[in-house]
Design a binder for these strands. Structure first.
Lengths: 198, 198
DNA sequence: GTCTATAGCGGGATAGAC
DNA sequence: GTCTATCCCGCTATAGAC
């Protein structure tokens, strides 16, 4: 136990990102110091700079990896068929992907202000890609005549805000199972874009 | 012009809160220094401590005042009648109140982590009060048989997340008038809690 | 009520030994 | 690859002059 020096690059690298994610989610990027992150990992502050050129890159990597994983997983979900089915697929995908990652969701949502301008634009582009996937489903549904949506871009943002808001209060092990909230949110989404009598 | 000393307590006080709100909304509480706030107001950093005992109190006051104004304005709206009408009133009230105050909404939403434990509980209580107002409308609608809602507490949070999300992208003077988005969001809210054929 | 000056601390990042 | 030590900077908050 407790050897104080040596090579650990294969395990320390991921641990740095894990620690940074947890601490930043809890306290915020600007409030977390490199010394705190190092303590969480179990190294001295200077050692962190073997894994990141600076603190800003740490934040950017957390957000970039998260967004790339979302987009990659969404592509793997390979939503097909009529728009209603694709919308259900998107809704359930969003919840299943995001609920187990509350820290990453929180950081990606709350820390946009703390990205450098260049990094902000990169993340913004990835976010827009994700939004567009939903917007296209809504447009398809309108074209099919199964959705009644006034403005697909506005509705896209409204639905994503609703779905992402779930990640801000839901915690695994609470009163509600993931299946249950998934069903409830799908019900809300489905109805909100449906034709419905006044 | 440019007198460097003198008494200005009647105008400096509000200017401190205004400057703090604007800067914190833009950069985040932890990233904004008392020196920045002082510069925005046009005084030296030390002078701020005539108006606040410390930085934490500044944040707390911003959030407390915002929440008290929301609750007071909601009470003034005096929503009455059948649940559908009250829900429409709440939805339009929420949008009309929040859209002109994007900075206050942003700070009250994003900076909860930076409140001391005691201050957090105080703000949390005010937030819960606001949530409860919506939850009671939903319960009334279910009792009247006009709303179909699985879980009123979950639906409350979902709807507030959707409505508040609007404040995070809408800007006055943009392409959409407030009346238009208000109508769109009311449509989404109304449908999401309505009876609707599978 | 505001100023200047500063105490006291903690921050990000780097240098060089091991 | 990690350590210790440190540079240099900016932070909150306070003290005392005006």
């Amino acid at each position: 136990m407790a050897r104080k020096q040596g090579s650990h690059s294969d395990i320390t690298g991921p641990k740095v990102l894990d620690a940074a994610l947890r601490l930043i989610a809890q306290h915020g990027y600007a409030a977390v110091s490199m010394r705190q992150i190092a303590a969480e990992v179990g190294v001295q502050a200077g050692a962190l700079y073997n894994y990141t050129p600076d603190k800003q890159s740490l934040l950017f990597d957390l957000m970039r990896v998260h967004m790339e994983e979302v987009l990659s997983a969404l592509a793997d979900a390979d939503l097909q068929g009529p728009a209603l089915q694709r919308l259900e697929g998107f809704t359930r995908f969003h919840i299943r992907f995001h609920l187990p990652r509350p820290d990453a969701v929180f950081v990606s949502y709350m820390e946009l202000r703390n990205l450098s301008e260049e990094n902000f634009h990169a993340i913004e582009g990835l976010r827009r890609e994700y939004e567009t996937a939903l917007a296209e489903i809504l447009q398809a549904g309108v074209a099919e005549g199964v959705f009644v949506v006034d403005d697909t871009r506005v509705t896209t943002r409204a639905l994503i805000a609703m779905l992402t808001g779930l990640s801000h209060w839901y915690r695994e092990g609470g009163l509600l199972a993931m299946d249950e909230v998934e069903a409830m949110y799908w019900d809300l989404v489905r109805k909100s874009v449906s034709a419905i009598p006044e």
